[in-house]
Design a protein around this nucleic acid. Sequence first.
DNA 1: TACAAAGCATATAGATTTAGTAGACTTTTT
DNA 2: AAAAAGTCTACTAAATCTATATGCTTTGTA
Lengths: 147, 147
Amino acid sequence: MLSKKTRYALKALVVLGKNFGGVPIQISKIASEEHIPKKFLEQILLDLRNAGLLYSKKGSGGGYGLVKDPAEISVVQILRLTGGPVALLPCVSLNFYQKCDECDNEVTCGVRDVFVDVRDVTVKILSETSIADVIKREKNLIENYTQ
Amino acid sequence: MLSKKTRYALKALVVLGKNFGGVPIQISKIASEEHIPKKFLEQILLDLRNAGLLYSKKGSGGGYGLVKDPAEISVVQILRLTGGPVALLPCVSLNFYQKCDECDNEVTCGVRDVFVDVRDVTVKILSETSIADVIKREKNLIENYTQ
DNA sequence: TACAAAGCATATAGATTTAGTAGACTTTTT
DNA sequence: AAAAAGTCTACTAAATCTATATGCTTTGTA
């Protein structure tokens, strides 16, 4: 399962993505719109900023904005930045690999082999999907929903 | 990430699957072979037994065995039995669904939409893969490894 | 220049979950 | 009768996650 941190980050990036090119948006606005605890969101956006994904502006009229086009930001990148695991087993993770305590030789582990496949299809989807794509999906869903 | 409980369950079932049709295997044997804490494994196998997946026999010469053919037991079933989440978001889970706190209307949530796709491919793999398949994979891996 | 708006940074508390341990009991075999 | 092995419940310890608190810095504006 993704952590709340990861979820909140994705939600916030969608908001910022819709606003790409516009004036900065305040944390408090995103927090209230998306029902995210403000102080928690503060930390998260700070992380994303320190990772070079967002710019920030202090003082009155300040806030956050995307540095890059939302089409250039993949969902998988956000999971990794916010520590969210993509793989279902540590011994299968590309970015957060950890040796399996149980296995003598993980290369011949059948269970691991299955979850390598799961990881591959998951990473494929999440790396091919950008924040812009998420926004597009949302638009399509709203269209079909209100029909 | 899968819990240790789920991992241990899968490991144990592979051992029991290889032994399908033979005499029962003791917890302590599985525990020491697979480097799993014995008392913890005890609980896990008990759960699997109560779920009807294993039979048990007490007393000297007792132990555990599979009730069904390992080809009839899917990996996804084990994840669900041991509480392991398949979906990466609660609002996307088929068996452990929970409403999203943040979303006003989850039907039009773009983030959710992406993770529905991820869930679908994951469930497909894990429901098409049986314990027997895991054992087969292991055999293939060992063959290729020792070549 | 003062003040308010907004982000920056770190520390800490609280809650939840997970992993593992303990101990006493029951059944079965020898 | 004794030993082997599973059954059952409770508990503890550790880790992690979520959220809050506090004080600080920067920037815009009256």
